[in-house]
Amino acid sequence: MAFSQGFTPHPKISYASAAPTGVASEAEYLEIGLREPVDPEQLRLALDAALSPGLDVLDAVVASGASLPDRIEASRWRIELPQVDPDVLAKAVAVFSAAEEVLVERMTKQGRRTFDARAAVIGIDVIAAPTTPSEDPDVPCAILELVVRQVTPSVRPDDVLSGFRVVAGLEPPVAPKVIRLAQGTLTAQGAIVDPLDADRDGATIGGR
């Protein structure tokens, strides 16, 4: 691992659009600077061995070309809303989608900020849920999938949920479960492409 110069050297590591605390993720990306070239698969195994169960390093490639933040244009999120009726959610989504702009507030490191949660949302679907996740099958659970463009300030799933409260008064009775499913570059069709694809050899493209 390479270190920055200076009095207190820091390891060279940078995270691109890390998921907020309390949010699950299947797709986090980071860049690491190394002192010398190593085989990416060996690196992956070594990092994976040192990390906690549940924190799995799935792939490593040698970076070339555009930096990681430039390759992350959007995220796909899945939000599970236990004890929320899917029909109620669908109505809120319809109002939200029809709006030009939905202003929400959040505390950031710079203090309380107001911003638009609507424009960055480029895909929003209520999933019919035959597979009620984890909990009691008798309790309804609405499920939402979102594709959100990477903007500044970032629009997070909780901002979209705040938007539902603003436009439709939707107030989830229990804490929602949020999972980031994917992030990467955005195709013209609105699909998300793995940001590491650009650095993979042809054989492994789409291998995940």
């Binding site: 992956r44 994976d48 549940g54 229990v174 492994t204 995940r208």
Partner: peptide, 30 residues
């Protein structure tokens, strides 16, 4: 190159994790 897959966190039989996890987003430094 082999394709690694995510290993689900093993949950012990007497684990309180399923009941604890939903509380964690509501506390500091979970």
């Amino acid at each position: 190159m082999s394709v690694p897959s995510t290993t689900p966190r093993p949950v012990a039989a007497n684990s309180v994790w399923p009941r604890l996890e939903p509380l964690l987003p509501q506390v500091t430094k979970p």
